[in-house]
């Protein structure tokens, strides 16, 4: 990105989301797109997080509630399956955990520093009191 001084600023600015010609974006998945440096997809807000969501695919029923309610496009779903979390764009709001309907939940919030393998090993078991 070119650094411009105050006097060099243009009155309006045009930012291109993609490098080169972009066609049929509505049917092109994120991994197939040619993002430009001025697309916020290339940036990260990972440092906003205090807690991170951890995904346990053993209990996931692919209901996609987390996908539709994620404000930050951080739930990656491909072929109707939830396959993971985009940790560059997740702000750690916790909506995905709240909307997860499984018992036990297949998404839970943990401290940012905690180790994912030990979290998955100590995943809570089914809560029998909850229906």
């Amino acid at each position: 990105m070119q650094d411009n001084g105050w006097n060099d600023f243009e009155i309006g600015s045009l930012l291109r989301s993609f490098n080169g010609k972009a066609e049929n974006i509505a049917t092109t998945l994120q991994e197939d797109r040619n993002y430009s440096n001025s697309n916020s997809f290339t940036a990260s807000v990972a440092d906003w997080r205090i807690e991170k969501p951890v995904f346990n695919k053993d209990f996931c029923i692919d209901c996609q509630f987390c996908w539709v309610y994620c404000p930050d496009i951080s739930i990656i779903s491909r072929d109707k399956k939830m396959i993971g979390i985009d940790m560059d764009h997740c702000k750690g709001c916790g909506i995905c955990v709240e909307v997860c309907p499984t018992n036990p939940k297949s998404l839970l919030m943990y401290g940012e520093h905690e180790d994912e393998e030990s979290i998955l090993a100590a995943w809570p078991s089914k809560d029998k009191e909850k229906k």
């Binding site: 974006i25 092109t28 404000p71």
Partner: peptide, 16 residues
């Protein structure tokens, strides 16, 4: 959920 999003993350909206 098979839709390809045309709105990107790392926007600066509040979490949630």
């Amino acid at each position: 959920s098979t839709s390809a999003d045309r709105f990107e993350g790392a926007n600066l909206l509040c979490p949630g």
